[in-house]
Amino acid sequence: MSERPHLLIVDDELLIRDLLYDYFSARDFEITVAENGQSALSLINEESFDTVILDIKMPDMDGLQLTEEIRSNHGDLPIILITGYPSVESAIEALRRKVDDYFVKPVNLTHLRRAVETAVDRQTTGGHQEETS
């Protein structure tokens, strides 16, 4: 309970990584950043995260492929996608991969934070009704 939620932020743009790092660090989140899909996957295999924020358009592996990888190996770890190039196709693909949310850049940070909090909550309670203590 006392531990800060751990977020992984994956974006190839330094500006976005810095922006999100500063915003969420100031709001009592523990942040790890990755600049591409491969390093994100390595981090997810080594560490435990409460939610992952992924950019869709990245050079090595796009956010949807990365989502597929995460779903295959890490079940329903909450994933929030962000993109500067929204499309019906990518939103449908995201829906089919059971992504928690999908934001269009420039992202409203308050809305993103709410989505992250909902996702962290889902992760913490396991997405199921927990027995009450």
Binding site: V88, A91, I92, L95, V99
Partner: peptide, 16 residues
């Protein structure tokens, strides 16, 4: 549309 596909995602639709 992009908006309705995102709304459907947020509301937990199984497919679109």
């Amino acid at each position: 549309t992009i908006d309705t596909s995102i709304e459907a995602l947020r509301l937990g639709a199984y497919d679109y």
